[in-house]
């Protein structure tokens, strides 16, 4: 018998602090596996954000730093410039990246900082108790939009990947989901490619991962994954938005 799948060495043995069925755990595994497979775990530096993933510095089996709310990309910029040979990545949720931290993220992307951003989009503020996030869908009920988000009062959901597509410094940008095994395999490929591009010093790479929040959505874990398929993916279409590597090969 040979081992086909086991706990990756990219993660520590500490039990994850996330709720049952939260897909943060799946994305953590994909990041850990990618770092191990590219043989960059020993020189990787994680930047944890504020939100549910605030403790991710305890889970990634590499050096880590925890940034104030929204400032992960700014901190990653500083660390990457001082230590250019290290692989620096941020792990941020939508409350962190799409709301308070959107300025830092856009400017880091615009400068083409050679960092990787793992962006978890679960359409809600998880840690603080299920408030409406910039990415919440129209009609979605949250604790601060109890009749559902409406366009007149709250505006439309921010589509981060569509927005970042136009920025010159972005080298790789893809939106993936982790709602079934097929999409998990695709998400792994995307995350690995982003780290590979950083290793090749191509520029800013970002992977948006459509993720679930069963507790704050008020659903069972399996139903939450089905809601990603039925409601989130039609609003946030999956796919590669920018791939400078592929563009270079074409030209």
């Amino acid at each position: 018998m040979t081992v086909k799948y086991e706990k990756t060495k990219g993660l520590t043995d500490k039990p994850l602090s996330y709720c049952p069925g939260c897909t943060h755990g799946i994305v953590h595994k994909l990041v850990g596996e990618s770092l191990v497979e590219l043989d960059i775990l020993d020189r990787a530096i994680a930047i944890a954000s504020v939100g549910c993933s605030v403790f991710s510095y305890q889970f990634f089996n590499c050096d880590a730093q925890q940034a104030p709310h929204g400032r992960a990309c700014a901190e990653a910029t500083g660390i990457k410039r001082v230590l250019p040979d290290n692989i620096v990545f941020t792990y941020q949720g939508d409350g962190d990246l799409a709301s308070i931290g959107i300025a830092e993220t856009i400017h880091a992307a615009n400068r083409g900082e050679n960092i990787t951003v793992i962006f978890i989009n679960n359409a809600i503020y998880g840690m603080t108790g299920g408030q409406m996030a910039p990415t919440s869908l129209i009609g979605q009920k949250t604790t601060t939009s109890q009749d559902g988000r409406n366009q007149a009062d709250h505006g439309n959901p921010i589509k981060i990947s569509e927005m970042f597509k136009t920025i010159e410094g972005v080298a790789y940008l893809e939106r993936v989901a982790v709602n079934n095994p097929k999409n998990v395999i695709r998400a792994k490929k995307a995350i690995k490619k982003a780290f590979k591009y950083q290793k090749e010093k191509r520029g800013f790479t970002m992977i948006e991962v459509l993720s679930s929040c069963p507790v704050n959505w008020g659903m069972k874990p399996v139903d939450a994954l089905k809601w990603i398929e039925s409601d989130m993916i039609p609003n946030y279409p999956l796919g590669v938005f920018k791939d400078k590597g592929a563009d270079d090969e074409k030209n």
Partner: peptide, 21 residues
Amino acid sequence: IGCAFCAMMCPDSVIKVEVDK
């Protein structure tokens, strides 16, 4: 059948999968 889908979808790395090769 050793497809490892269960382990892949497990957020908490509970499952280890071994296969015959």
